[in-house]
Design a protein around this nucleic acid. Structure first.
Lengths: 153, 153
DNA sequence: TTTATTTTAATTGCATACAATTTAATTTGA
DNA sequence: TCAAATTAAATTGTATGCAATTAAAATAAA
């Protein structure tokens, strides 16, 4: 591919992924609105439904988000009564996020989200699974770059 | 897959794409910093290098961005001297975006961006092409949903 | 122990994103 | 023609997203 071709928008894999990510969150939006959640709030709740009483740091590592994003987001979820934020008694640096009963209860309503979104999309299961595995491959291919610093390389 | 499994973070294709998109822009960031551009500004310039003197609307359709995002972004690029913003004489509603000589000249420096980013990533060409075509498929599968309104369905 | 370093969140500042509304210009229709 | 509807940007308001800095707490090291 020529340098010229390499700059065309339609040839950018980065743009394809970027555009898809936005389109996907757009698809979720109306469904999540029924739960009173934004997309980012939804994935935060997904993480908490899997593992409760975690620190902001752990949550951030799982969601690839830092405290700059999570602190205000978690404050909003706290204001909605879905979770509590309290310092860890053993290590006051850490803030433990715990689901409230309302937060746990919301999971029941969320159970139908994946199917609803899937039905609204024109995607079949095979494509979905293929994409997920491919994104996983891509992520592991990209991650070492940033992770090298942490390992001191 | 059970409803329970369907809510696990690692099973979310949406999250996989969302996380990859962020990781990709992170990868571009240091390379684009040398050009004085953010990722979104970069894809806007890519579009303009392909076709100059376009309206905000046309640019928005190609980038999947609306005027709420583009107006401030284009004002910044104008302030950097990369483009001009002027109403279309034929239709005063439209704002025509035109590259300045500096904006056109920047393309030369940008020619090496794709390769630089590619080399920094641990991705091979095959994976890249496969992902791009898959994202294209996904986009067309998702687009009809939103596009139906425009077609009046 | 007591200072230096590290760790964890919060904060600050900047740049998106996008829904909803507003404004100005153009086109449609009665 | 001229009011109604439509279109294109800009604006407003809310919610991310992240780099960089700050503050507080814990750990390491001298």
């Amino acid at each position: 591919m020529s340098f010229e071709e390499a700059l065309k928008l339609e040839n950018q894999t980065c743009f394809a992924v970027y555009a898809c990510a936005k389109e996907i969150t757009r698809l979720y939006q109306p469904v999540l609105k029924e739960l009173g959640l934004t997309y980012t709030q939804y994935i935060a709740m997904l993480a908490l439904w899997e593992r409760d009483a975690v620190s902001v740091k752990e949550l951030g590592e799982r969601l690839y988000l830092d405290s700059g994003t999570l602190t205000p987001l978690l404050k909003k979820l706290e204001a909605q009564g879905l979770l509590t934020r309290a310092r860890d008694a053993g290590d006051e640096r850490q803030l433990l996020i715990r689901l409230s009963s309302a937060g746990k209860a919301l999971k029941e309503k969320a159970l139908e989200v994946p199917e609803k979104v899937f039905c609204q999309s024109g995607v079949n299961v095979e494509m979905l699974l293929k994409i997920r595995s491919q994104m996983g491959e891509l992520m592991t291919a990209l991650q070492p770059v940033g992770a090298a610093d942490q390992r001191g390389e």
